[in-house]
Amino acid sequence: MPKEVTKLIHKYLRHDKTFPHVWCPGCGNGIVLGALIRAIDKIGLQKDEVVLASGIGCSGRMNVYVDFNTLHTTHGRSLTFATGVKLANPSLTVISVMGDGDATAIGGNHLIHAARRNLNLTAIIINNQIYGMTGGQYSPTTPYGSYASTAVYGHIEHTFSIAELTATAGAAFVGRGTVYHVTLLQKLIEKAIQKRGFSVVEIMSNCHIHYGRRNKMGDPVTMLQWLKDHAVPVEKAREMTSDLPEDKFTIGILADVEKPIYTEEYQKIRDQSTSKQ
C-alpha cells in the first residue's frame, strides 16, 4: 500500500529543480498536498485542465512542486487571479490554496466576495493559526490568549471561523477537516472540487515551529494530538444538547447548497445581449 501511494505522488510531482521543499519537517502542508493529489487523481482530472493557484506564505509554495498549471500570485490575491482565469476559460478546474493570514487577513475581502459571487472555484485554506513563513506573527485565527512573535504578552484579539464566515458569505460548499483526519480530508477536497459553485475546505493544520513552540506544543505529534482531541464531527455536534466548548471545532461538511454558478449566469447575459443587438 505505501508503495502505491508513493507511485501516485511521484506521478504528480515536479522533480526538476524544485526540491528539497521549503517546509519544516512535520509540517501539515505535506499532508494537505498528499490529500489534494489523491483527490485530483481519484476524480480523474488531467494535469492540463487543473490550475493550482496560490498566494504568499508557506502554503503559497505548494503549487511549485506539482505538475499542473501552477500560478503563484501575490499575498491574499490568489482568488482574484483565479477569478480571471476561470472567467477566461471556464473549462479549467481552478483550485486556490491559501493560508489563514493569506485568505482571511490580507485576502479577506476577496474571499467573502468570491463566496458571494459563486464562481465554480475551490478554495483550500490551510489554517495553522499563525503566519509561519514570516516568523510566527499572529493571524486572524490565532486564538485569544495564545502567544505569537507579535503577541508575546498574550493575544488580545478574537478569531473568526473561516468555515462559518465563508458559509455565511454564500459559498455553495464548505467543509472543514484537519491534517490528522486524512481520509476525511481527501473526501472533503474531492467533494469541494466536484461541487458546482464556490467551494471551501478549511484545513486545521499544525505549525509546531512558530505556533506550537510558543504555545507548549513544540512538536508535530503534540499538535496533531491537539487537533484530534479538539475536532468534533459535525454530525455529533448537532446531536449535542449543550454548545460546543470554545476551544473545539467541528469537522465535516458544514454547508452544501445549490445555487446558479456565475459563468452559466454570465452566458445567459451573453445570449440575451446578443439577441438584443
Binding site: 500560478l71 500570485t73 490575491r77 487571479f81 477569478t83 480571471g84
Partner: peptide
C-alpha cells in the same frame, strides 16, 4: 463585451480587478 462573447466583471476593489485581468491574460485572453 457580452455581445461579442467577451467578459465584463465588476470586482470588489482595484486590487482584485488587476489580479483578475492578469489571470485572464494568463489564460490567453
Amino acid at each position: 463585451l457580452p455581445k461579442i462573447g467577451g467578459t465584463f466583471i465588476q470586482m470588489e476593489d482595484e486590487i482584485a480587478s488587476m489580479g483578475a485581468i492578469v489571470g485572464a491574460s494568463l489564460a490567453g485572453v
